[in-house]
Amino acid sequence: MNTLLPIAALSIALLAAAPAQAADPHAGHHAAATKNAEMSHGTVKKVDKAKGTITIAHGPLVNLGMGAMTMSFKAKDAAWLDQVKGGDAIDFVAEDVGGALTITQLQRK
């Protein structure tokens, strides 16, 4: 019986903490995804400074569960729009930021 008391106390403590985690089940998920996201590879097809987008022909985006294709992404850093041009080979990380697929890391090869 003496072992049940500490187990019961631990169970109550865990249940008390659960609502805080349940309030935002994705809390910290995006920050962890950014740090652990593997760079994807692609080729810049077009830069649209007016829209703030870069169109990339890319391989699989593992962190987003997407296959290879060509698509436009918002640029997190507007300076990137001046640093790349059509034909440039790049490594990048794209994430869903507020419902918009956004390049969050970018490196020219």
Rank of each mutant, 00 (worst) to 15 (best):
M1T: 12
N2M: 14
N2W: 11
L4M: 12
L4V: 09
L5F: 12
L5A: 13
L5D: 14
I7M: 13
A9Q: 09
L10K: 08
L10I: 12
L10W: 01
I12T: 08
A13E: 07
L14V: 11
L14E: 06
A16N: 08
A16K: 07
A17S: 12
D24L: 02
H26V: 10
G28Y: 05
G28D: 06
G28T: 06
H29R: 14
A31I: 11
A33M: 15
T34S: 14
T34M: 14
K35F: 09
K35C: 02
E38Y: 03
M39L: 15
S40Y: 03
T43V: 15
V44N: 03
K45N: 15
K46L: 12
V47I: 05
V47F: 07
K49D: 09
A50D: 14
A50F: 00
T53F: 02
I56Y: 04
P60S: 10
L61C: 07
L61P: 04
L61M: 13
G65Q: 13
M66W: 12
G67W: 00
G67N: 12
A68L: 06
A68V: 09
A68K: 10
M69S: 10
M71F: 07
K74M: 08
A75P: 00
K76H: 08
D77F: 11
A79V: 10
W80S: 08
L81G: 01
Q83A: 15
D88M: 04
A89G: 07
A89Q: 15
D91H: 11
F92D: 00
F92E: 05
F92T: 04
A94T: 00
E95I: 06
V97M: 10
L101K: 12
T102E: 02
T104H: 06
Q105E: 15
Q105Y: 10
L106H: 06
Q107R: 14
K109N: 14
K109P: 00
